[in-house]
Nucleic acid binder design. Structure first.
Lengths: 214, 214
DNA sequence: GCGTAACCTTACGGGCGAGTAGGTATGCTC
DNA sequence: GAGCATACCTACTCGCCCGTAAGGTTACGC
């Protein structure tokens, strides 16, 4: 025959990464259910049974994607925001790393943020990662607060941290859909909103509703 | 026969609402693909062909859910935030209405926010609603800015508005998972973050990164 | 050179669920 | 109380796609 197989044989570790790359790409575009294992295999340049042999069922494959992308993201953030820096600097570096990651791994982000959300088995997995992130942010706020001699209820802190994380994720999502946008600039904007808002809170300023007649 | 049919015959308009109720409930728990038309029909106390007769295919049914819940939400917000109020009061009433809606329609919110996000045909639909909301918030910010004699680039404004909407949605999502939480209190917290942060921005304060050696 | 193990394929089973065909009951109108 | 439209059902078809069985091919040790 002329061309028995144009494809080279590759070691397992390499193939696995190729498969995960393809899976992330397809899952991000189609979502978990609409994605077909055939399409993922084809996109990886391999046939379907190999995917099952290496990464297991569709669900396990999705979880593997979730883990890889989640770990990458967490490491990018943790590596940038050293714990011994002042609070604003720490926040800033964390944000920059985060937006940098999203800008560079747009479909990885889409899998994490858009696809894993609604589907029952994965939502919990994701919520865990999210919770760790919120915890870290809340810890930063708490640290800054104590340094100023103030103290805030734990649940209050958590909710504010939640809002900040949500705002950040939302901007990240916007970034993922706007390839022309600059991650660095987006991070700066987020930092403005977050830090100025937080600074006010740190000083004890509070907005409260004026009583209105129904 | 003893009990030929325990179910009453009902006019179309009523059944349609029951079906939509059931659909929202099932879609919110399972997601679009994992939800089965049989389950929706059963939950609505009706048989499958009726759903097809009244609301069309699965996709059309989902869009109908999206429209009903989206319209309800938008109306709740628009009805509360009259345009002739001062900016902070307007924002406050809008937020209160929004969190009230989410608290009262938790699974409607889940369909909008968690399920419609990733699936290709619906993401656009949702993005439109979102964009309208961002537009309104950006308009409010702009209005307040001009009143203080300041002016900000349109894209800057939009991004800040995006962050605020994202933070709000994120807190709403938190609320949807915490039945014990109080919508009103959550709205107040969000208002604190948003308004204090915004007030700083209005006064022209800006955070900017200090140059750091790599 | 020859076995063995890892890599890789084509080709199929089987289930689940979207959508439909065709028929039955109920109420409303005159 | 006949006619007709609308509400409603049981029971099916059919395609898609997950997951696998069984076999072919390349590298590598000895």
């Amino acid at each position: 025959m002329s061309t028995p197989h144009a494809f080279k044989r590759l070691p397992r570790a390499v193939r696995e990464q190729q498969m995960l790359d393809a899976a992330v790409k397809v899952f991000s575009r189609r979502g978990f259910h609409a994605a077909s294992m055939d399409e993922i295999a084809e996109d990886a340049g391999i046939s379907k049974p190999m995917v099952y042999a290496y990464l297991g069922t569709k669900e396990e494959l999705f979880v593997a994607c979730l883990h890889r992308e989640g770990t990458r993201m967490m490491q990018a953030i943790a590596g940038a925001a050293a714990p011994d820096l002042p609070a604003d600097e720490r926040l800033w570096r964390g944000l920059r790393a985060f937006f940098g990651f999203v800008g560079a791994h747009r479909d990885g982000w889409a899998v994490l943020y858009r696809q894993a959300r609604g589907e029952q088995p994965f939502a919990g997995e994701l919520a865990g990662m999210r919770a760790r992130l919120v915890e870290v942010v809340a810890g930063m706020l708490d640290h800054a607060l104590r340094a100023e001699g103030r103290e805030v209820g734990e649940s209050d802190l958590e909710v504010v941290a939640y809002a900040l994380v949500g705002a950040t994720e939302s901007l990240a999502d916007w970034l993922a859909d706007h390839p022309e946008a600059d991650p660095e600039a987006t991070a700066t904007r987020m930092m403005n909103v977050a830090w100025l808002g937080a600074a006010q809170l740190l000083h004890g300023d509070t907005w409260h509703p004026r009583p209105t007649p129904p």
